[in-house]
């Protein structure tokens, strides 16, 4: 297993490098000269030269990439064009805020969806199954920006029990999850973000469990006298690799922070940050954020992959 882990880690390196190249190339892929975004329109030729030098644009592109990568590896993503502050500072603050929402959504969606999917898959065709499948379909088909707005209208505007925006009472700097005044701000965003993962994971779990139950070995389990709860445990373990794959994907999406949901709730997370950076063409922020999110995605895949192989050793061979 250790050898396998090392091999998978080595495989992840070229992927990470590829991702970093794409992020670096963002400066050039984005329409317009990167200098244009940095400089006022009436900048003198001298200033242009100076900025070029300062940002290293006068060097060949591979050298620029190497220099940029070297800095990134030490956690230096440059400075935001819009605010002038270090990108890393803004980025990690936003990331922490998004993680807060993502963790909540993961905890709720994954446990609920897994439980509902298992029950529905075990009793395929029953009333419970039809109800759960209905919930799952609703979950995946409601656009979450629409749901966010409806929730705001109901709970913030009409009933006035939950706040519509922000992370805490006005003027508070830190976020304390355990106090109601702060906690009430996460309820609507987490609920909104949970809907799609609930739908997708429920459906996957249901079909995996139902499919596994039809396999021959389940009959062997019953024939050796296991009671249904023990049989179900085997079935769940067999379904887990596929379910984990979908969970990993959903976790990745949640970490990216939903631009629409975070914008509606003015939640200062990565989605919000990306939105702002796109509007202000703040390339360093975009580069840094996308790179870090992509790395989280790569790392998630790696972890899921290792979990899957730990559960089902047949996967190790391929």
């Amino acid at each position: 297993m250790t050898a396998y882990i090392i091999r998978r880690l080595l495989y992840a390196i070229p992927i990470a490098l590829g991702v970093s190249m794409v992020c670096f190339a963002l400066v050039y892929i984005a329409p317009g000269d990167p200098l244009q975004t940095l400089l006022p329109e009436d900048a003198s030729a001298e200033t242009i030269e100076m900025v070029k030098k300062a940002y290293g644009f006068d060097k060949p592109i591979p050298v620029q990439y190497a220099l940029w990568l070297g800095k990134v590896l030490t956690g230096d993503f440059g400075n935001s064009i819009a605010s002038g502050r270090a990108v890393s500072e803004e980025l990690f603050k936003a990331l922490a805020n998004t993680i807060l929402l993502a963790a909540g959504a993961v905890a709720i969606a994954f446990s609920l969806a897994f439980a509902m999917g298992t029950v529905a898959g075990y009793w395929v065709g029953s009333k419970v199954d039809r109800f759960v499948t209905g919930v799952a379909v609703v979950g995946v088909s409601i656009p979450n920006y629409w749901l966010a707005i409806v929730l705001v209208i109901i709970f913030a505007v009409e009933l006035n029990v939950l706040p519509a925006t922000g992370m805490g009472p006005r003027g508070s700097d830190t976020f304390e999850l355990l106090t109601w005044d702060h906690f009430r701000h996460v309820i609507l965003p987490i609920f909104t973000l949970s809907m799609i993962p609930i739908g997708i994971i429920t459906r996957t779990t249901r079909s995996c469990v139902a499919e596994t139950l039809n396999q021959d070995f389940v009959e062997t389990l019953r024939a050796k006298g296991l009671v249904e709860s023990q049989v179900l445990l085997h079935v769940i373990r067999n379904s887990l690799p596929q379910v984990l794959a979908v969970m990993g994907l959903q976790f990745g999406y949640l970490m990216g922070g939903s631009i629409l949901v975070e914008t509606i709730f003015t939640w200062p997370g990565t989605g919000f940050l990306l939105n702002k950076a796109i509007l202000t063409r703040d390339i360093p922020v975009l580069q840094g954020t996308i790179l870090v999110l992509a790395m989280i995605f790569v790392a998630t895949n790696l972890v899921i992959d290792l979990c899957q192989t730990a559960i089902d050793p047949r996967l190790k061979r391929s």
Binding site: Q215, D216, F217, E219, T220, A223, R237, I311, D312
Partner: peptide, 12 residues
């Protein structure tokens, strides 16, 4: 059972 290939739980 007839099929030893599928009668055992593959992940245990």
């Amino acid at each position: 059972f007839q099929e030893p290939m599928t009668a055992l739980d593959p992940v245990y």
